[in-house]
Amino acid sequence: MSSLLRALLRPQAATPLAAFRMAAGVCVVITLLGPILGGAADAIWLAPEYGGYRPGGSVPWIVELLGGKTPAVVHGLIAAGLLFGALTAAGLGGRLTIFLALQSFSGVINCNAHSGGSFDELLTNGLWILVLAPSTATWSLDAVLTTGRWTTDRTVPAFWLWIPRFILLLLVYWTTGLQKLSHHWVPGGDLAALYYILQQPSWHRGDMSWLAHVFPLTQVMTLTTWLWEVSMPVWFVALLARDGWGRVGWMKRWRVAEA
């Protein structure tokens, strides 16, 4: 256990965390801009009396606090989300900015829980980790203000990089793979899951019936997807071994025994 702890506390460059922060900030901006440019924002997020379509539904705490799903509140939160999303990408304001980006983004998208998806939750999960982590240590305006340089040599404990990996590889990919129990997914059946999913109008922009002519290819892709997801723990341990844990503890002994 102590070897794992040592590996998790080992100092590592802060640049991957900074890249993650920048990507998350850009995603907040893009996710909020999309419905505005697509003419769908008011219909989805406002109350019916202001041009929205969905009556009732639970309202996020911040929206309730500010007065409900009115244009002033929702548009204000969208503006705040865009501003703090951009500042998150630029790395100005440290934890506070990212926290405000998370709360304003979360407030807007939860105005209508029917119109969201796992992509929203993946982003908010990531933003919360960035709030807790020293994510503006480098590649940030905070670094410019404190050191005069865009990049710094600051390191962060390795666990800040392992937490997003754990969430993405084990909690997202693995658990979703374990739940793909349709007889169209699981090996031994027709392996037609991807083919049929791509026939659903929700997931395509145009007719995808041409896939019938490359059906065996979609079967291979179905099997590959399923195996990829359910084998995630193997990839996770392999990453750990490559990235530090292999140098300490039981894995080192295992490697010696293997040699």
Partner: peptide
Amino acid sequence: GARQGWHMFLA
């Protein structure tokens, strides 16, 4: 923002 179980494309 972490209230999520990952039920994605289950069937």
